[in-house]
């Protein structure tokens, strides 16, 4: 494929997923360097575009974006990577929400943002892919190179953790507000 045609094709097929790519990268990296990482990922995607044989272009691109993010995290020695979560541990009891951490009817979006940012990488990425990008378990499994069962259990544990963090924050907020009143 001549380079010019390849670029036109790439811009039509892959560039429309820039929003999804940027959102995922920004949630994984958690700072503005996501822009550079996304650019690097797109160039990598362009270079290997000749090897792309149809199929879901969004899943294909997000796989490359996620890999680029992990390389960045590795380069920058983000601790999360050296400290992986225990897939087998049964956090069920610990993560079961206590009545105190029951969700309030209205939660400030800023608090959700902070709670999600605090969540360990492994849980954060599956939640972002599932709830924001609305990817299926199968697509997430492909992108993150995980068994579908692991995707499901990470989502379950991630939600419990998120709920616990939100409960803590809300309680704190309620107390602060109460104290001020």
């Amino acid at each position: 494929m001549p380079e010019e045609n390849k670029m036109v094709c790439f811009e039509q097929v892959v560039l429309p997923h820039l929003g999804a790519a940027y959102n995922l990268a920004r949630w994984l990296i958690r700072n503005d360097e996501a822009e550079d990482v996304v650019q690097e990922a797109f160039l990598r995607a362009f270079k290997s575009f000749a090897g792309y044989r149809g199929g879901d272009s969004r899943t294909w691109l997000l796989t490359i974006v996620r890999n680029s993010c992990y390389s960045w995290l590795q380069r920058n020695r983000v601790r999360e990577l050296t400290d992986p979560i225990d897939e087998t541990s049964d956090e069920h009891a610990a993560e079961t929400s206590s009545p105190e951490s029951r969700l309030m009817q209205s939660v400030d979006v800023q608090i959700v943002r902070e709670a999600l940012t605090e969540l360990p990488l492994e849980f954060r990425e599956v939640l972002v892919m599932r709830e924001m990008e609305e990817l299926t378990y199968k697509e997430i499994a492909l992108i993150a190179d995980l068994p579908i069962g692991t995707v499901m259990s990470r989502l379950a544990r991630g939600r419990k953790r998120l709920q616990a963090i939100l409960g803590d924050r809300m309680g704190l907020q309620v107390k602060t507000k109460g104290g001020a009143a």
Partner: peptide, 28 residues
Amino acid sequence: SLVHDPALRFIPPKSLERQLRSALRREV
């Protein structure tokens, strides 16, 4: 529904798409 809130999505800055397109052209 909390996490699904569109307000949580990070929207790429307009400049990013421009940068991307010119980086692709340079590459070509």
